[in-house]
Design a protein around this nucleic acid. Structure first.
Length: 570
RNA sequence: UGAGGGAUAGUUCAAUGGUAGAACAGUGGACUCUGGAUCCAUUAAUCUUGGUUCGAAUCCAGGUCCCUCAGCCA
């Protein structure tokens, strides 16, 4: 049922059980569900899945897998005014991409008829009634957190009248908001969810799946538990904010006398420097602060895929952050660690120069072109080598040269010798500047005896740098991504500011003309590589046959940048 | 001020009456044809006050702080 989920860190967490697994063990010990574990992932199709969902998905599918059970994907599509087919499609795609496959694909809307019949049953049992109060009046009657509510004047209608009215609600006799069906529980309950919750509202709206078959739609509380029950779910895992709903979840199921799943709540996963609420993500998209749901800066799964994040990194991240009853804020660097870990093992190396500085090797023959063998992945030599052409005119990274090098700068500077990866040692002899004093070219010499990068005399060099042959380089656009926000926790912003005020202006930087070694030619959309010394990159969907576009998935860890930052701060 | 939850290194999790540990982050070092990777070392925590106990992060009592709930959203 699950696929491609081996070798997750959970293997290293053996013996450590979180509270959910302990509950399941207890159920298995008592025989409550006959040893069965059947879970479900129940998104509402009103937006794209994000990293927080990845945790819920991994948990639900992972649990079932561990206990030899099954998991359904179920769309909680009970509110047609907010839901769209586009979201259904993207969710299906994202769950698959994450590496999971479901036992059954279901929709809450599959159960509309059954839910309706059960509502009728509740009316017949005298525990549900049609209320004519307006939304405002209902709110007013509900009381407050500290004061009990008051009963609706329509609360004690006869069963016959309720049945008649409910039938006519379904038949479309009433306008939106004219009536609702409510459960008759306790208007004085200290838990406001039990103060006669609404079961059905009238919504003359077209549903993505049921079209115009219905004009009354069940509320979450009425639909969710019963849907779980129908599917034979044993453990209904949801987030903390539903704790107060559990008594209601249990109440409905007990009234109906049907299979009773156990609702279990766990803490949401938040990550620093981004936002995770659907409302905020929707604003980012609608107000065009990003280019779409899959803009690589977004925390959505489709954005992660586009940016080049391997699904295994997300799964490992979900596993290692654990499950508890605290709503935590995990450091984005934790996620980045798992992204790097996975990509380092699996992705080929390539040399690419983002900000080119021309280097002319004055003692290298004009027309000579050599080809060097460079390892595809030093982590896995079995992958072999690739050929990289070398010639008299090269590009190196501007950052790799300093005319007056500060302490601890190991790279190229006048008179200093460095290694060009897999090629030769070169030495900087002369710096060429334009009229404004900008460095435009370096004149260097190479040492032919260091061919392949090894010095015969055993002399050492402090830096090995990436490079690209000017005549052979492939031009590409490269998009560098940084954190979406300038502050780790959006909750820490000034009260009179909006989270949009904290969008990182450098969250995206576009380099129009970068130079990549020719082996990159023909790379397909989605192809992941490491640009040596720079980071991991993936070919973006904006690429065309004529022009490659790369997204930086994540940088490499970088001691030098860190040194500069700490020096700048001090 | 009603109800329901929560509080352990900077962060996320362990420890379930018996030596407070891991991962990420940080720091120092080794190694290196990626200032990458890897390896080694290291800094760093039980919200608070009492109580029970030979022994408390864990049990009990009081306090403090944080989160969620008053949609015809989910």
């Amino acid at each position: 049922m699950t696929t491609d989920v081996n070798n997750t860190p959970s293997e290293n967490l053996e013996g450590k059980k979180d509270f959910i697994r302990e509950i399941i063990d207890a159920h298995n010990a008592s025989g409550r569900f006959g040893g069965q574990v059947y879970t479900r992932f129940p998104p509402e199709p009103n937006g794209y899945l994000h990293i927080g969902h990845a945790k819920s998905i991994s948990l639900n599918f992972g649990l079932a897998d561990e206990y030899g059970g099954q998991t359904n994907l179920r769309f909680d599509d009970t509110n047609p005014t907010k839901e769209e087919q586009e979201y259904i499609d993207s969710i299906i795609k994202d769950v698959r991409w994450l590496g999971f496959d479901w036992e059954e694909l279901r929709y809450a809307s599959d159960y509309f008829e059954q839910l309706y019949q059960w509502a009728v049953k509740l009316i017949e049992q005298g525990v549900a009634y049609v209320d004519d109060l307006s939304a405002d009046e209902i709110r007013e009657h509900r009381g407050t957190l500290t004061e009990p509510g008051r009963e609706s004047p329509y609360r004690n209608r006869s069963i016959e009248e309720n049945l008649d009215l409910f039938t006519r609600m379904r038949a479309g006799e009433f306008k939106n908001g004219a009536k609702v069906l409510r459960a008759k529980i306790d208007m004085a309950s200290p838990n406001v969810n039990l103060r006669d919750p609404v079961l059905y509202r009238i919504l003359h709206a077209e549903h993505p799946r049921t079209g115009n078959a219905w004009c009354i739609y069940p509320m979450y509380d009425w639909a969710h538990g019963q849907s779980d029950s129908i599917e034979g779910i044993t453990h209904s895992i949801c987030t903390l904010e539903f704790e107060d709903h559990r008594p209601l979840y249990d109440w409905f199921i007990d009234q109906l006398g049907i299979h009773h799943p156990q609702q279990i709540e766990f803490g949401r996963l938040n990550v620093t420097y981004t936002v995770m609420s659907k409302r905020k993500l929707l604003r980012l998209v609608q107000e065009k602060h990003v280019r779409g749901w899959d803009d690589p800066r977004m925390p959505t799964l489709s954005a992660a895929r586009r940016r080049g994040v391997p699904p295994k990194a997300l799964r490992d991240f979900a596993t290692v952050t654990g499950v508890s009853k605290t709503n935590g804020m995990v450091d984005m660097q934790m996620l980045e660690y798992y992204i790097r870990q996975e990509l380092n093992k699996t992705v080929p190396r390539v040399m690419g120069v983002l900000r080119p500085l021309k280097v002319v090797l004055t003692n290298y023959p004009e027309d000579l072109v050599e080809e060097f063998e460079a390892q595809i992945n030093p982590e896995n030599p079995a992958e072999g080598t690739r050929k990289v052409p070398f010639s008299r005119v090269l590009y190196i990274e501007q950052d790799d040269f300093m005319e007056t090098p500060p302490p601890k700068f190991y790279r190229l500077s006048p008179g200093r010798e460095v290694r060009l990866r897999a090629a030769y040692f070169i030495k900087c002899e002369e710096v060429i500047k334009d009229a404004d004093g900008n460095i435009v070219e370096l004149r260097c010499t190479y040492d032919p005896t260091t061919r392949g990068g090894d010095a015969q005399d055993g002399r050492k060099v402090k830096a090995t740098m990436h490079w690209v042959s000017a005549a052979h380089a492939v031009e590409a656009e490269v998009r560098l991504y940084d954190y979406l926000l300038t502050i780790p926790n959006p909750a820490d912003m000034d009260e009179n500011k909006d989270f949009l005020d904290y969008i990182n202006p450098k969250s995206e930087e576009v380099i129009e003309r970068a130079f990549i070694e020719p082996s990159i030619k023909g790379a397909e959309i989605g192809k992941q590589v490491q640009f040596e010394r720079l980071g991991y990159f993936a070919v973006d969907s904006d690429s065309t046959p004529d022009k490659l576009v790369f997204n930086r998935t994540v940088t490499l860890k970088d001691e030098w940048t860190k040194l500069q930052k700490t020096a700048g701060a001090g």
